[in-house]
């Protein structure tokens, strides 16, 4: 060992540091498989995309599909609902970001950025607070104050573009990655 009488490092110092370094790096590599095994397996990832036919959905109606284990909301909005969503300035929103997987992260939450075609609103039906499924608001059974969705678990209130307006949820309902494969057909994921 290097000490007062012999300031030069010894062979033992070298071996000590080299062994310690190898153990530290080795341990870090050994831990990774044990952590990564908990991430989604290939079988889960393989089922991550679905195709949906929209023909049967009526204006004002919402149909729920299952995608990646979550409900997927497909809502055919009425002109009134679209107008209501477009009348809100982005500055008045709780979450100013579009949360649209088809756009850049920084895209603002204007109604235009929440849809591909204004009539069709496609959302992951999972409340961004703690993961409950919000209830859709219809003229026959209104929910919340903004005509979109209300989450009954902790009272998060969404508008007709699925944007959070009131309550504990921090983000707008997520827009999944999707594309129109035909005029009334979409592929999600």
């Amino acid at each position: 060992m290097a000490n007062a009488t012999n300031p030069e490092p010894t062979r033992r110092d070298f071996l000590y540091i080299a062994t310690g370094a190898a153990v530290t790096v080795g341990a870090a590599f050994a831990v990774w498989p044990f952590i990564d095994q908990m991430n989604p397996s290939s079988a889960v990832l393989a089922m991550a995309s679905i195709e949906v036919d929209l023909t049967a959905i009526q204006p004002g109606q919402q149909v729920i599909f299952k995608w990646r284990g979550h409900p997927l909301f497909v809502r055919r909005r009425t002109p009134k609902e679209i107008a209501a969503a477009r009348a809100v300035p982005v500055s008045a929103l709780v979450d100013g970001l579009a949360r649209n997987a088809n756009l850049k992260d920084a895209a603002p939450a204007s109604d235009e950025n929440r849809v591909i075609k204004p009539e069709w609103l496609v959302l992951v039906g999972v409340c961004t607070h703690l993961g409950c499924i919000p209830t859709v608001s219809t003229p026959q059974s209104p929910q919340g104050s903004f005509g979109g969705w209300l989450c009954h678990c902790h009272g998060s209130d969404y508008d007709t573009a699925g944007r959070i307006r009131k309550g504990p949820a921090p983000q707008n309902l997520a827009v999944p990655p999707y594309a129109f494969t035909a005029p009334t057909k979409i592929k999600i994921g």
């Binding site: 908990m38 991430n39 989604p40 991550a48 990646r68 284990g69």
Partner: peptide, 17 residues
């Protein structure tokens, strides 16, 4: 959360762990 669930929602993988 995805790591805890082993998927995109609470499911079979979550139940097993």
């Amino acid at each position: 959360t995805t790591w805890l669930w082993g998927g995109f929602a609470v499911d079979d993988a979550t139940l097993n762990r």
